[in-house]
Amino acid sequence: MTLAQPLPTQKDEAWRYADLKAVETIWQAVDAPEPIIVDAGQSAQQLLVLESGDARMRQLHVVLEEGARMDLACLAFAPAYGRIEIDIDVASGAHFEMGGAIVGSGEQTLEIVTRVNHHAPDATSHQTVRSVLAEKATGSFLGKITIARDAQRIDAEQSVKSMLLDRGATANAKPELEIYADDVKCAHGATVGELDKQALFYMASRGLDPQAAKRLMLHAFVAEAFVDVAADTDGVEEQALAALEALL
């Protein structure tokens, strides 16, 4: 099944940072979102790593039934243009946990787009995204959280941090909250920074060469993305670290 939908444009909020030329090359071949249903009371783990290529896009549609839990680790580092797009419907008592990492360099454009739909009360979602961007890469996270009128006592959290290694690199972090219930907790934080120069000098003063010092700091930074994901993320982390190695 393919998408019989018109090509998105820059005016579409969810596509404003996309490389639309690259999108066009694959649009006809893109599958409909992969459905994943986690039955009531069940847990599921999912790993999603974009493959290399000129343009790669993966879309998931996750449905969490009552009391279900999904732990998702996703990573974008390989393709020239890459997009991970996830829709999540969260029922009562369910929890969505996501760790996402973007590692980009050259002229790569990589993005993670999530839409968490809290349509029922007493549920939680927690998303952690870490991006490391070098040279002229662009990394974007667009995270929309919708909390319906009847979905009281929701706790939805987003933590998004980006690290720019070069002047030409760009990080976009766009949280979007649509909250119709009044008794909710919705914490979101987004920061963009550079490697801490004081820490680099401190490490050098102990004998670490600049490359090793950077490596330690970047590893720690990216590893934060997966700390709360209750899944075996070793393989994903290893790929992320290997991608970082290329930036040192």
Binding site: D196, Q198, A199, F201, Y202, M203, L216, M217, H219, A220, F221, A223, E224
Partner: peptide, 8 residues
């Protein structure tokens, strides 16, 4: 002033 290095 010793420097903090989060995560390491």
């Amino acid at each position: 002033y010793p420097v903090e290095i989060p995560g390491v």
